[in-house]
Design a protein around this nucleic acid. Sequence first.
DNA 1: ATAAAAAATGTAATCAATTACATTTTAATT
DNA 2: AATTAAAATGTAATTGATTACATTTTTTAT
Lengths: 332, 332
Amino acid sequence: MATIRDVSRLAGVSVATVSRTLTKPDKVSQKTREKVNVAIKETNYKPDILARNFRTRKSSTVVVLVPDIANPFFSRVIRGIEQTAQKLGYAVLLGDTQGLREREITYAKMVDTSQAEGIIQLDCHIPFEDQENITAPVVNACDCVRGIEIPSVQIDNISAAKEMTEHLLSLGHKNIAVISGPEQSTITQDRLFGHINSLNDAGITFKTENVAYGDYSIQSGAKAAEKLLNISPSPTAIFCMNDEMAIGAIHYAKKKRLSVPDDISISGFDNISFAEYSDPPLTTISQPAEEFGSFAMSMLFDVMKGNELEEKYKLLPFELIKRKSTGINNHD
Amino acid sequence: MATIRDVSRLAGVSVATVSRTLTKPDKVSQKTREKVNVAIKETNYKPDILARNFRTRKSSTVVVLVPDIANPFFSRVIRGIEQTAQKLGYAVLLGDTQGLREREITYAKMVDTSQAEGIIQLDCHIPFEDQENITAPVVNACDCVRGIEIPSVQIDNISAAKEMTEHLLSLGHKNIAVISGPEQSTITQDRLFGHINSLNDAGITFKTENVAYGDYSIQSGAKAAEKLLNISPSPTAIFCMNDEMAIGAIHYAKKKRLSVPDDISISGFDNISFAEYSDPPLTTISQPAEEFGSFAMSMLFDVMKGNELEEKYKLLPFELIKRKSTGINNHD
DNA sequence: ATAAAAAATGTAATCAATTACATTTTAATT
DNA sequence: AATTAAAATGTAATTGATTACATTTTTTAT
């Protein structure tokens, strides 16, 4: 493999000039630039990025911590991250953490060893051993850690849950169940808070037993629905905190020979591609997944560069998508 | 940030000894090892991986080229890659190529610049400018390039398509349509070949107009179904080359007030998590997505190490999953 | 106790770029 | 034409680890 030295020799210039031709061509006269470029072609020289990174102390790499890459919502976020990273000249290292703190920390340490320059965390944890003392550039996307000074981009989950709940209330539902995400998750808490708020505003008392916790999988949604649809009085609507669980819930409801939405309204969250094609099509909250990723990457870029952030806690717009899985309550 | 020099000074040993303590501890006496480890803790030393990579000429990184990370099947493959990479001490760089050759080449070049040591390609292209002369370690997963010496792991797509077609034939279908993947793709060609073979074996002539090409998206499946279900005589079964397109096809069929499977049988391919929960649940071919990834990573490891591969073209088992979306033909 | 072999440690070169600083060349100004 | 300023180029140090080779220390065998 040719090195910068080989090129410099062939072109009859110093290594510094070759380096400059590559990284700041405007500092080199056109004549030399051409000579050097010819030599580069001649030798088939490719700059050794490892050496460059080492010398510049920059890896031009970010690592993304994702609880589950196979989750269609997260993978869209990652697509957004990748696209913007590419534009900004960064490579994306994948850290599938399975939600394990240990693995998050392992990946986050790549910043200490200068393998990565920054971290995008899609989960609501602080990926450091010392939670108080955050030294690495990190931003949260989708979910976030409350009360900690980590920049984040998400939607206003409280308002989104309110809007969904109000939609269900407007259809005449009074006994609304919830299939929630993991109890510790910030977005879960926010959405639950928004839900309860709306209920209170409508003069309806929230009942704890109407909440079942899932893990965002279809299976967990079906299981939660089983629990919720067998309490009495049976809820007439279920607000699910993601589309997969909603699909699982619909599946269980159908199995129980309940019609969706005639017997039970079921709503989702995220608006994944399958939502539109589920039977019935899913009423859900559309989240700008790609934009989360792309925005998070832009923010991380600023943090890494030491730029001031315009907004430290960015909220992107969401949208209530009304489809056929929710309908008028005709049971009471 | 502390360097190896700081540690050596504090521990009263040479830098070589510190380095050895870290990378080959058995070459260092226990007494010194302890001294060094104390000094490492004291100084909070973290080896600079950039420097290490540079000196050893290894990045311990592989890059995976994926046409679309948001595809649930690919994201499972990637999960498998990530898990095995982690175990083998490699980091995974994400190359979302959108199927663009240009982007594939850009990412593949990371091996030339020693940013990555190897490539896992999930598409059926050769990601190099010079197609003839492959110098970088690369393996294909899921799809593969025919007639080229690139190690690959996939299922026997011909047999899988045969099995599915035979299943449909056994249900009495004689006019079977196909919603195919992109025409240039090897797996598409293999599956079509298997399909036609089975048809021939059963004495049925294959009709070109019974094939519609999609791009693996739900939408394209729905569109293809629209085309296929409006030719006459209408097919009584559709063999789709992935689950998303099958879900799209089912959606269109229902919209046309056709019952699946009573009026039209529809089958998928991949067995993504949504297949089981679609309405009706999807008859499909289960592919071992995670194993593809994990196996591909193991193979790539061997290629990178210069080890002989046990099998250059590995076939993993698939399974026909019979569910409710296919049924007896009661139309002729 | 001594010689030989093995283990442990140290010295310093090395990897391939970038870049501060010095020097030379070119352009602009009087 | 001489002087000054600006642009272009070169020299050589630098980055932080690894490792070949040399040297010292410890262990083993006689």
